[in-house]
Amino acid sequence: MFSYAMRRFITTIPVLLGISVLVFLTLRVSSGDPAAILGGDAVTTEQIEAIRQQLGLGEPVWKQYLLWLSHALRGDFGVSYYYKMPVTQLILSRVEPTMVLAVLTLAVSILIAIPLGTAAALRAGSIADSLSTAVAVVGFSVPVFVVGYALIGLFSIKLGLTPVQGYHRLSDGALATLASTILPSLALATVYIGLLTRITRASVLEVLNADYVRTAKAKGLMPLPITIKHVLRNAAAPIVTVVAMGFASLISGVVVTESVFNIPGLGRLMVDAVLARDYPSVQAIILIFTVFYVLINLLADISYGILDPRVAS
């Protein structure tokens, strides 16, 4: 098992390196002269030259990349052009809202999708089945920002149940945080619920048709214990993979949702940074999101191995 995990880990390293090159090059090519941007309005040519030296911009590109990477590995992403503070510090100040949003979204999705998907599989053609199909199709088709505005229109403006927008930090009280993140996580969960419901339904169906389940039924066990004891346990592996895979849609969703709901997290920071041409921040956030995404997939692969030992051997 351990060697399997190691093997998987080692294969992700070239992918991560490739991504870092891609991110570095894409944004370095485009950013014009960072020294001129950093220098501001009243900068002289000598000052620009000094900043260039300081940033190592005179070096060949591969050397610049290694320099950037070695700094990045130590958690130093340089200074934001726009916010005039270390990018690392900037990012740390924005992590909390995004983490809360992501965790809550995961929780909401799992709580809705797994029961719904299981119910749909147990009774094909029932209301739960049609509902799961509808949820899946709508989840894939209606953009997160449209869902967001629909939720705001209904729950905040019409019913006045939740704050319209904004974010309350955990230090202001967990309840306030929950109130300010429940709508965004619902909006964000739509895509996810669609995906997860379908996968749950399919994997549960597959297990239900397996011989040992039929045997259990023949032994006279009630349907519900069957579901819990055997079916979900055996359907877990694909579901876990999808939870991880869906992280991609979660990240895209975070970028949009934080803009709709005015949540000062990493997603909005990235949009703001792109609009302000703040390349060090954009580089850092893309890299962090991607590394996170790759690692989550890695974890999913490994846990798949644990849940379904046939994979690892």
């Binding site: 704050p163 319209v164 803009s259 005015n262 000062p264």
Partner: peptide, 12 residues
């Protein structure tokens, strides 16, 4: 506090 737009601000 910074709000991305006036819609957010007025509702706050």
């Amino acid at each position: 506090v910074t709000m991305p737009d006036q819609f957010t601000a007025v509702n706050a």
